[in-house]
Design a protein around this nucleic acid. Sequence first.
RNA 1: GGAGAGGUGGCAGAGUGGUCGAAUGUACCUGACUCGAAAUCAGGCGUAGGUAUAUGCCUACCGUGGGUUCGAAUCCCACCCUCUCCGCCA
Length: 479
Amino acid sequence: MPSPPCCARSACVCPVWPAACRWAANWNTSTAAPWPRPCGKDAKPSTESQETFMLDIQWLRNDLERVAKRLETRGYPFDPTRFQALEVERKEVQVRTQNLQSERNQLAKLIGQCKARGEDATAHLDRATGVNRQLSELEARLADLQQRLEALLLMLPNLPHESVPVGRDEQDNVELRRVGTPPVFDFPVRDHVDIGETLGLLDFKAASKLSGARFSVLKGGLARLHRALAQFMLDTHTREHGYTEAYVPYLVNAETLRGTGQLPRFEADLFKVPRGEQESHYLIPTAEVPLTNLVRDEILRETDLPLRLTAHTPCFRSEAGAYGKDVRGLIRQHQFDKVELVQIVHPDRSYEALEELTGHAERILQLLELPYRVIVLCTGDMGAGSSKTYDLEVWVPAQQTYREISSCSNCEAYQARRMQARFRNEAGRTELVHTLNGSGVAVGRALVAILENYQTASGAVRIPTVLRPYMGGEDLIGP
RNA sequence: GGAGAGGUGGCAGAGUGGUCGAAUGUACCUGACUCGAAAUCAGGCGUAGGUAUAUGCCUACCGUGGGUUCGAAUCCCACCCUCUCCGCCA
């Protein structure tokens, strides 16, 4: 039986942004995917008391040993016996609880009928009191059990895809390919800090006065180059790669961060913004957070997939675990700009989409003529939400090495499950979407790469050809 | 910042303690009628979870969380959000 779409295409009203479809059509010259147009009788906040886990709990119930083994490859210790014990108890208590609830409902109904007929209901009332006494105890036990199960499972990282190399840390990542050739200089190579400060366009002293360590002030041609980079990336992704540009909030609530997996585990990496009595906001650590959460609690039509979204935003990270790392320069800052790519796709297509998305990020580096390499992260080095991640690393001449400039991940249903982001499949059933994200690319680090790779003997910096239209035709930032 | 109104199924909109998971309209799906369509008629149409021979049965959900009660969409408390007016502001 064909699945009945739950609303007519023409009549469907997008509760996210009612005018969104028109926007996408009018503002985007590309073949951009439309905005989410949830067709939902059910497009309402998910508030089910049933907890939602990071992994499908059915995997654990049905295939515990294999899941445990795969988690081990990520260096995550998981105790199957403890889970098993909790699960057995949960099952027993839940069945008993629901049976009692059923009995209580029956009795309440009976009492109502008696009273309506003016009959005596004392006997039923007595029984109901007894049932409720048992029930309150059982319900408390069930809630406790489910909480403990959740606590156990909430920390689980995603399962790695079978194609991901098994390894402990970044040492075990695998290089897939190198593109471009690192430039050879016939003069002493300077690093981007040296270049920028000598030009008088990069000022860490001022930034430190304003804000402290790990901030920066860019001026003049350098500030413009930074802006040019972001513009160029956005234009490329919207015009050539089919993404819809979005402008999104930089402050988000806790629920949103739970959706993409930053909370509850990684609160220390975030900047929290209290606002009196009200719930705190957080500064986004990446546009992945607001972009991906656009489909939270939505049921999309299958024909809406894939959704391709991009945004240029600042990103804020407290980098709590990075003291002493990359203290010099623009590489590791509390605030940096990034153009982010997000795709919401059909589960059957997410690995194709990962290759495409990575290609979209690579395209930026190719057009900028920056040498880079692509590596696949091993099981031990991936982010918790990812099933497979490619990192793009750009050549940094002063360090004579490749440094990360983009990270492209397929999160499969990990985020979708937390967000309850679904689509209605052909059979008419709801199914979790797969989510992907990747930097396309980090603007600050791209700036570093250009300063260093395009430096000249005279201390100037040549401007990559594709950026010149964004720089008023200039081809050089010079002293 | 001040004042007020309100949050029920895709939409509209009933429901103020008892067969209400929720009337009715509309949209949508299937079937009948039709050469076909429209109209009309009949039926269907939320999400999540549990159980499992089951197209079966059960549980939860009317913004969120708590409370009262044998029984809550309905009563009480707190919170969140939206809208309107005034002020301020880019």
